[in-house]
Simulated scan of single mutants.
Amino acid sequence: MTNETEKQTSYSSLHDISMRKEELLKQIRHDQQQMGGMWNEMFRPQQRTRKKGLNLQSMLNTGIGVLDGALFAWKLYRKFKR
């Protein structure tokens, strides 16, 4: 880096240094919040919008699966009842 691109600030008192420190801490916290939000947004699963038909279909599939399991259990019970 050259001296032209570097930003040099002169401080005349401890108060100037503490003010600069507070300003930098605010910037760092703001940047951390932004980066945290972007990170969470990147890895958060997207919300799926479910339609009424899909909910009904899911309930129907589950119900049919339970009924099929019950019928299978009844057939096994009758077969091995002896």
Rank of each mutant, 00 (worst) to 15 (best):
W39Y: 12
S13H: 01
Q46D: 11
G65A: 01
Y77F: 05
T49Q: 09
R20S: 05
D68P: 10
G53A: 13
A73E: 10
F72P: 03
G37N: 03
P45G: 01
G37W: 00
A73M: 06
G69D: 09
Q27T: 02
M38A: 09
S18Q: 08
M38S: 11
M1P: 07
Q8L: 13
T9W: 00
E6K: 09
L24S: 01
G63S: 00
D16C: 03
N61D: 00
M35W: 02
N61G: 01
K52P: 13
K79H: 00
S58K: 14
E41W: 08
T62R: 08
M19P: 02
L56Q: 13
Q34C: 04
T2Y: 05
K51Q: 12
I64F: 05
T62S: 10
V66L: 09
N3W: 05
Q27N: 10
W39R: 15
K75I: 11
E22N: 08
V66E: 05
Y11T: 01
Q47W: 05
D16Q: 00
Q27S: 12
Q47M: 13
Y77K: 12
K7I: 06
G53W: 15
I17H: 01
N55Q: 07
Y11H: 05
S12P: 01
L54S: 12
M42A: 15
W39E: 13
E22C: 03
T5Y: 03
G69Q: 04
G69M: 12
T9D: 03
R20V: 01
Y77G: 13
R82L: 06
D68Q: 14
I17N: 04
K75F: 07
F43E: 08
N40Q: 14
I28K: 14
E41Q: 07
T9Y: 08
T2R: 04
L60E: 10
W74A: 10
E41F: 10
S10G: 06
S58E: 15
M42W: 11
R82E: 09
R48W: 04
K81L: 09
S12E: 08
R44M: 15
K52M: 11
E4Y: 09
F43D: 08
I64P: 01
K26F: 15
Q27F: 08
K21I: 05
M59K: 13
G65M: 10
Q46K: 03
D68G: 03
F43A: 12
T5K: 13
T49L: 03
E23D: 02
L60I: 03
W39T: 13
A73W: 14
R29Y: 11
H15T: 08
D16G: 00
K81R: 12
S18E: 11
F72Q: 09
N61F: 02
R20L: 07
Y77R: 01
I28Q: 14
L24D: 00
R78M: 00
R48H: 07
D31T: 07
M38D: 10
G37F: 01
M1N: 06
M42R: 15
D68R: 15
